[in-house]
């Protein structure tokens, strides 16, 4: 039995309930040409502390699935349960609140704001209109997040002075600063060399040891093998 969300804060269901559960998700791209089915009846579940890798060729629907999980977009069909609550048809304002409270996002292209320092980039996730904490508390949260990814000493550096790996770790700290329940990482190692990529994957995997769910979209089979579960998307369906 499911219940719908009427508050942006999460009502945690009993331990056996998955963090998120998508059932029969279909997404059709309606552009100027013929409608194209990107995802077709996809089922997907992640439990607390579980890491899942999603493999697939370009255009297979990996990123689209991640967008639906991260509430960037809405599915055309199917059901989306978060902690057992139905959030399939969520208003934009509620979706924004859930993105802030539940999810941490890591992207291939770090998306750091070049005019802000590493600490300010991390703090950006705290200054998003979803509640307000004092400057002191924000500073403490940011320091902890940077510590967690091992770059606390670079807090005052601007992105232009950081290496790719360091920038990605700042982005991970930004994802972690609100202590999310699920990390969604879209090819986070795509722009990094193998060694740095491994380091980043290790940092992400560390979060699952604290009970966080991790969904990693990647092309790299080595990184995928480090995850607890590997799924492959092909033509909008999981094999």
């Amino acid at each position: 039995m499911t219940q719908s969300f009427d508050q942006p804060t999460v009502q945690v269901q009993p331990a056996q309930a998955p963090l998120l559960q998508l059932t029969g998700i279909t997404k059709v791209l309606k552009g100027q040409g013929e409608p194209r089915t990107i995802l077709s009846g996809v089922d997907f579940t992640v439990h607390a502390g579980q890491s899942v890798a999603i493999l697939g060729r370009s255009g297979s629907g990996k990123s689209t699935l991640l967008s639906l999980i991260g509430l960037f977009d809405k599915a055309d069909e199917g059901q989306y349960l978060l902690h057992g609550n139905d959030i399939t048809k969520l208003a934009e304002r509620r979706a924004a609140a859930l993105r802030s409270a539940e999810f941490g996002f890591v992207f291939q292209r770090f998306f750091l704001l070049k005019h802000l320092t590493a600490a300010q980039n991390v703090a950006m996730a705290l200054v998003n209109g979803q509640g307000w904490s004092s400057r002191r508390k924000r500073k403490q949260q940011v320091e902890e997040a940077l510590e967690q990814v091992g770059i606390a000493h670079l807090s005052k550096s601007k992105p232009s002075r950081l290496s790719g790996g360091e920038q990605q770790r700042v982005a991970i700290a930004r994802a972690l600063v609100r202590q999310p329940r699920i990390i969604l990482a879209d090819e986070p190692t795509g722009a990094l060399d193998t060694e740095t990529g491994n380091l980043v994957v290790e940092v992400l995997l560390n979060t699952t040891r604290q009970g966080c769910g991790l969904v990693l979209v990647t092309h790299d089979h080595d990184h995928a093998r480090k995850m607890g579960r590997v799924m492959e998307l092909r033509d909008g369906r999981f094999n």
Partner: peptide, 16 residues
């Protein structure tokens, strides 16, 4: 564009 998309991704509403 990227900054605004990112801000929305980390939980900012359209209105804000």
């Amino acid at each position: 564009v990227e900054e605004f998309a990112l801000r929305r991704a980390v939980g900012m509403s359209r209105l804000l």
